[in-house]
Design a protein around this nucleic acid. Structure first.
Lengths: 196, 196
DNA sequence: GTCTATACGCGGATAGAC
DNA sequence: GTCTATCCGCGTATAGAC
């Protein structure tokens, strides 16, 4: 669950992370999920890793750097899903696969999605982050087809927001993973006008 | 924009707020929008109001209390929208009105929605908050009809998450209010299977 | 890379006078 | 209700040894 198999050549990351850094980001991610980004301190991350704060400063110069690395880590997961979809035989199949994988991802990582996507730091960072935009572009192209107008991008944003937002919604708290997954999949497909 | 006309009898708030408290919440809300909940300190709120921290502590015993009051303020806006919808002549009309008003609300308050809905404090507070659940129930009843199965609630959650999430999505940053509004309305109606 | 030690500032919160 | 003053703790960050 921590840091294997996310990377590959998928990562549109500024600087590749060392193994130690990956561990740090993994620990941070788990803490972000429980306490929120702002609610997670260097001290907590250090404790979780069994090292001192100073040790972490060696890998990341600021807390923001960790947050961004974590966000890029999550983005890489999405990229991996997109790549899997793009390798499908037909556009229709690609779309099916992608929707399913996005839903899986969101459910599996329910706690992270919220803390990260909601964080002001991340939002502003990603809004002028080229790699992020490219990922969103690929995403919406698979989802909406090449012929999607300029509005396609917002549709994709809305769908991902819907999925990401729904899993962290208070209402979803009561549902177990399986129920949540099947419901989301059904609703997402309806949003895309696919047969349910 | 600050504190008029939101209340009425709509407010399912624990304790009604005094005029001073309303001012404080208004200022807090604006700061939350810009800096996030965690990024907003008592000091900042005090500065915005031109008073000292201690003065604020007289109105709210903890920072959490302010956050909750702010969230309830936003919730009251939703309630007002629901009430307006419920007063419509037909269920179909009610649904149309509600969708439109929810979209309006989200666009108008794009910055708040995100900071608040994403905040861990709010999420956990609302998840066992009866008034909030009642509001969501009324919401989904208007949107989905009385005959909505047990899944109706999640559908409503997903729709509101979709709208709320889309407005704070990095992609939406580039759109002006009017474009965002019309796009969201179109997509939301499609989600509900309404004629576009 | 990791440690100990230390600094600095700020945020949350309280006491008590006006 | 608002002020001044003050406490405490924690988060961020750096220096310098191992």
């Amino acid at each position: 669950m921590a840091s294997k198999g996310i990377t590959g050549n998928a990562s549109s990351r500024s600087t590749p992370l060392s193994a130690v850094q990956e561990r740090t980001v993994g620990a941070a991610l788990e803490l972000f999920a429980r306490h929120g980004v702002a609610g997670t301190s260097f001290q907590m991350i250090a404790d979780a890793l069994g090292v001192t704060k100073a040790a972490i400063y060696h890998q990341f110069k600021t807390k923001e750097a960790i947050v961004i690395a974590a966000a890029e880590d999550e983005l890489a997961r999405v990229e991996t899903a997109i790549e899997a979809a793009e390798n499908e035989a037909s556009p229709a199949l690609a779309r099916d696969v992608l929707v399913a994988r996005i839903v899986d991802l969101a459910v599996e990582r329910r706690r992270m999605e919220g803390s990260l996507l909601g964080d002001p730091v991340i939002v502003s960072y990603f809004s002028h982050h080229e790699p992020f935009r490219r990922v969103m572009d690929r995403l919406y192209r698979v989802l909406m087809g090449d012929d999607a107008g300029p509005d396609g991008r917002l549709s994709a944003a809305m769908l991902t927001a819907a999925i990401g937002g729904a899993v962290m919604h208070p209402i979803a708290t009561e549902l177990d993973d399986e129920a949540l997954r099947s419901q989301l999949l059904r609703l997402a497909r309806r949003f895309l006008d696919l047969p349910t």
